[in-house]
């Protein structure tokens, strides 16, 4: 009853503060869209150097959108690619196509591969099924960059905005004296935390649904697995952000100090959540990621969205997130002791 009252009040406040509601719901969509545009901005026809390719192959490539330049000399083609005039060089070793990709721009790699695969498919309809041999001038190739980043960013924006808004709300409860006032009622400390979870929970659910839908349906980020599972992971991640934000707000004197947690708490999570490949880092540094909630959320979202993983694959991540939320909530109940001992 008391928890419901608290949750209801938070919902009422939220509905009146339209700007904050908009920040929570729309800002992630805006940023995701921008990221999409930035990553996909150079979606131009790939420039392919064709070294002594038979004309059916050349026309197949051209039909699929490639700008094909014929070469008689592979050396020359590779040199031109080194000078950034080509995105890929395709040669034929017997019936085996070899594709050398420039490799520094994931978007271009994707463009080339899309065209090459379509062209090869067309040709293979005529009987000869072949997989091209890939090699890279720079780097080692990657899959669709926005799919890759996008899946993690979907989780990150849930996390970031919920963290900030929940933290500031709880902080304001303290600085305006209403927390003191609440604690002069028979409200228990855990009921305060539970009320916040419930009240904010509604909006985080709304946010998680909106982001997941927008990312997959409007922006077209790959979604191999179940949409519901994406939603669940997003929600769990948002709950971790909610509990962490309210917990940390106990250690901030004002909104400014709350924002100071962004570089300390939020930014490191981006580094360790798998956006950047940490394989080359020392083992102990990789372990740091395991201590951060976003790592698990990102891991699960990547799995579901890119590899089509199901519940069996992501339950460990879910359990970790639930564990984090519980831990933060309990710590928050304890932190509230500062304001009332019982």
């Amino acid at each position: 009853m008391r928890i419901r009252a608290l949750a209801f009040r938070i919902i009422r406040q939220f509905i009146k503060d339209k700007r904050t509601l908009a920040l929570m719901l729309l800002a992630p969509l805006l940023v995701l869209t921008l990221m999409k545009l930035v990553f996909d901005g150079q979606a131009v026809d790939p420039l392919i150097g064709a070294v002594k390719l038979p004309s059916p192959v050349v026309s197949a490539l051209q039909n699929n959108g490639a700008v094909v330049t014929p070469y008689e000399n592979e050396e020359l083609a590779l040199k031109q690619m080194g000078d950034n005039e080509l995105d890929a060089v395709i040669t034929l070793d017997g019936l085996q196509p070899h594709i050398v990709l420039e490799g520094s721009n994931p978007t271009k790699i994707r463009n080339v591969m899309a065209v090459a695969q379509k062209a090869l498919q067309e040709l293979s309809n005529k009987g000869n099924e072949v997989e091209p041999v890939l090699s890279y001038l720079h780097g080692s190739g990657d899959r669709d960059i926005f799919d890759y980043y996008g899946s993690v960013l979907v989780g990150f924006f849930s996390f970031f905005f919920v963290f900030l808004i929940a933290g500031v709300s709880f902080l304001r409860e303290r600085t305006t004296g209403t927390l003191q006032r609440l604690l002069a009622t028979p409200l228990r400390r855990w009921e305060v935390v539970a009320g916040y979870l419930l009240g904010f929970g509604l909006f985080t659910l709304l946010q998680a649904t909106l982001i997941a839908w927008y990312a997959t349906s409007v922006l077209g980020i790959a979604l191999e697995g179940s949409f519901i599972l994406v939603l669940v992971m997003n929600l769990l991640l948002a709950l971790a952000a909610l509990t962490l934000g309210t917990l940390l707000s106990a250690y901030a004197q004002n909104e400014f100090q709350m924002f100071q947690f962004i570089p300390l708490i939020v930014v490191p999570q981006i580094f360790f959540c798998g956006l950047i490949d940490l394989q080359s880092m020392p083992e102990w540094l990789q372990m740091v990621g395991r201590a951060l909630p976003l790592y698990y959320g990102a891991d699960a979202l990547r799995g579901i969205m890119l590899r089509g993983e199901g519940w069996n694959d992501v339950w460990v991540d879910s359990a970790a997130l639930v564990g984090f939320s519980l831990l933060f909530a309990i710590l928050n109940v304890l932190a509230l002791r500062k304001h009332r001992r019982i």
Binding site: R4, L6, T178
Partner: peptide, 19 residues
């Protein structure tokens, strides 16, 4: 200790429901 965004009535409703 009042919630500025809420109306007086809503404030009263909230605090009273805690009791």
């Amino acid at each position: 200790a009042l919630y500025g965004e809420l109306t007086a009535q809503e404030n009263l409703e909230f605090f009273s429901s805690l009791y």
